[in-house]
Amino acid sequence: MRPSIEKLVEKGFLLSTLLSASITIFILSFMFLFSLPLFKGGKIVEFLRLGWNPYEGNFGVFPMMVGTVIIASFAILIATPFGIGCSALISVFSQRRFGRFLRKLVEFMTGIPTVVYSFVAIFLLVPLIREIFQKGTGMCVLSASIMLALLILPTIVLFLTDAFNSVPKNYLNAAEALGATPVQKLIYVIIPSAWKGIISGLVLAAGRAVGDTLISLMIAGDALQIPKGLSDAARTLTAHIALIIASDYESPEFKSIFVCGLILFVFTMLIVLALRLLGYFEILRER
């Protein structure tokens, strides 16, 4: 009796795993199928290379790809040091109770809807940025990156604190016995032995940064140019999809957004792959 129930439960788990995995694959193939006409017509190179100019018949998304990459990378760049700092405070430097309180606060931050962030940014951050740069509207790459950094910070912090906390106690004790200060402990013991968790945190955070729509839609300015500086307005792929989806189903504009979806998918896959590879080489090196 027992084993059969065990088997049943196992089967159930297998089924749910297969289901979620197949949905991912299904979505990918769905988008591929719908963007097939563009691949077949040999238009794909133009599509990836050119800008968006519907009146001239160009439906390229190169500026949006650049926008996505730039905004997301700046967000990661801004969020990573803050993330490491926060998590170090939570799990290394502060009293246990205060640390727990801080962690609860960060957990709460994960629940704030992105539309609230963007809304607040429009009133507080955008005018500030406009006056700092003395040009442009304030809706630009930097504003969007700062807000995105805030959005992905909790993800990074939660992963990092978990990683920091799982560093074996005897390592820390050994370091302490050698007379290491907390800062030395963090730099020489905790971070090197927690890099796996750091990488997972950054992967997930990068995924969120690339995939978020509302922040870039509302405060990046959505201009069609290729951004040349931090104060330039830019459009991300996600915002582009949101802006175009209202157009006619039959139009080439609409068809092109499937390719945008596919590109987004590939982007996230590449990020995951790159960081996993990094981790893999690290393992080889350690051996």
Binding site: G51, P63, G221, D222, A223, L224, Q225, A233
Partner: peptide
């Protein structure tokens, strides 16, 4: 007169 709109233009919905 069907002239161009600058690529730097911001979009609102």
């Amino acid at each position: 007169k069907k002239g161009e709109i600058a690529k730097t233009a911001n979009f609102v919905k």
